[in-house]
Amino acid sequence: MPDQAISIEKLTFNYGRLKVINDISLEIPKGSSFGLLGPNGAGKTTLIRLLTGLLKPSSGSISCSGNPPSPANAKNIGYMPQMPSLYSELTVKQNIDFFARIYGMREKHQRFQRVDEVIKLVELWAKRNISITQLSGGMKQRASLACAIVHQPPLLFLDEPTVGLDPELRAHFWEYFARLTSAGATLIISSHTMDDAAHCEKLAFMREGKIIAMGSPSELKASTGKPDANLEDAFLYFVRLGEVTANV
């Protein structure tokens, strides 16, 4: 069994003439949380969609636990898209149950138990029989997360999972993500907020389809040479460094 949950080599994705992902190589060890941090349009969502197999690379290779992304391996991944992506007429419980079923949880008793468990986990128990249209934005995010984790995947892709959540709920999400990684799951999380990124064990700063820096949050901050630097300073430092290098 490979120790890397994800291995990417020289990955490129072109959309027409536009290079959306530009020669990315990285490895993500199993049981870690890996953040993709960058502004809108940096290529974070495209990279996640390539990793889930929704998009096909223009060149380069991707391996998820030793295999290329395919429907056969899809059972082992959980995917939470940027927008909630739920069936609006169905209730919270019906949505989660549907995703549990298509991810292979066929045994009814076990499935119902797990569905109830994740509903409680995302604190939607009181709303479980309410249709998605009647939920607030934050509640929809929680229901969407529940759909992604109900089958307990070892590899989880979360595209901007905390957008629109209040600080308390955001903290709650991050506590849960930490529990998942300590239980052995690998999390790949995209974000454009520095606060979120600080929770990840390792980060990749992305800009214009490239990874401009990679390391733990403390390593990245330390690279600036300033003792009080935050992640925003670190990001700007690497952006400027890239511009200087490009001009040399």
Binding site: P71, S85, L86, Y87, F99, Y103, C147
Partner: peptide
């Protein structure tokens, strides 16, 4: 349009 097809396509369903 509601994004559920993308979610389905990332799942094991054919």
């Amino acid at each position: 349009s509601q994004g559920t097809r993308e979610r389905l396509m990332a799942s094991p369903v054919s």
